[in-house]
Amino acid sequence: MATTADIRNGVVLRIDGQLWNVVEFQHVKPGKGGAFVRTKLKNVVTGKTVDRTYNAGAKIEIENVDRRDYTYLYTDGDGFVFMDTEDYDQITVPAETVGDAKNFMLENQQVTIAMNNGQPLYLDLPASVVLEVTYTEPGLQGDRSSAGTKPATVETGYELQVPLFLETGTKIKVDTRSGDYLGRVND
C-alpha cells in the first residue's frame, strides 16, 4: 500500500471505489503541527474536480492506468470500435465512455485510451482536429469582417459557431476540449 509520499501529478488514486487523477499536489510542513499533503483531484469518469487534504504518511491506494494509442475504425451500434496500433487488437468502447469526443473523431484518427484492468476509462484526443464544414448558411456580401458568427455543421455532425465569411466545404481547425473554432486550414 502506498503513502502520501508517493503522490505525483498524473497518478490515479482509488478513493471510495472511484478513480481520481491527481491534477496538483503540495506537501506542506507548517511551523506548528504535523505535515500534510494538499491535492486537487479530478474524477476520471465524471470530470468533477475536488480538493482533498491528507495527513503526511497516510495510506492511499494507487491504481495502475495504462494509456495506449489506438486508431478509431467505425461506430457499431452504440459502441465505438478502436484498433490497437501495436498488436492490432480491436476493442469496442461504449458511447458513455467516449462522450463528447465523438464530435471530433473521424475514421482512422489516432486517439489515446486510458485503461484500468481492461476497462476503458476515457479518451485523450489531440488538442485540435481538422474538420470540413458540411453545411452553413452563405455569407452576405460585405460580411467579410471577423465581427459576427453563424452556425456551421462539420462532417461529424457537430455544430459550432464560425465567422461569417466561411462557406460549405471549407476545412477548419476545431479545439477538441472546448469545441470552439480555431481557424481556417488552407490545403
Rank of each mutant, 00 (worst) to 15 (best):
N103A: 06
D180C: 05
Q109C: 00
T156I: 02
Q90F: 03
Q90N: 03
T156G: 07
L125C: 00
E61K: 13
D187R: 13
Y135E: 14
E107N: 09
P120R: 10
R184H: 04
Q119R: 12
T71H: 07
K102Y: 05
G118L: 06
V23E: 14
R67W: 12
L121N: 04
K32C: 08
G142M: 12
D76F: 10
K48E: 15
V11G: 01
F104G: 01
V81T: 13
D84V: 02
D87C: 06
K150N: 01
D143H: 13
N21F: 11
V65W: 04
G57T: 05
S128T: 03
E132I: 05
N186F: 14
V98N: 03
T46N: 05
V174K: 03
L41M: 09
Y54N: 06
P163L: 06
V98P: 08
E107G: 10
F104S: 04
V154F: 04
T168W: 03
E86T: 11
Y70L: 10
V98T: 07
V23W: 05
E63I: 04
A152C: 02
V185K: 08
Q110W: 03
N186H: 12
R177L: 03
A2Y: 14
V162H: 08
G157Y: 01
R177D: 05
E86C: 01
T136Q: 02
T3F: 07
P151F: 02
D89Q: 11
V81H: 04
L13V: 04
R8K: 13
D76R: 11
D187M: 09
T112M: 07
T46M: 07
T97V: 15
V37T: 15
S145E: 12
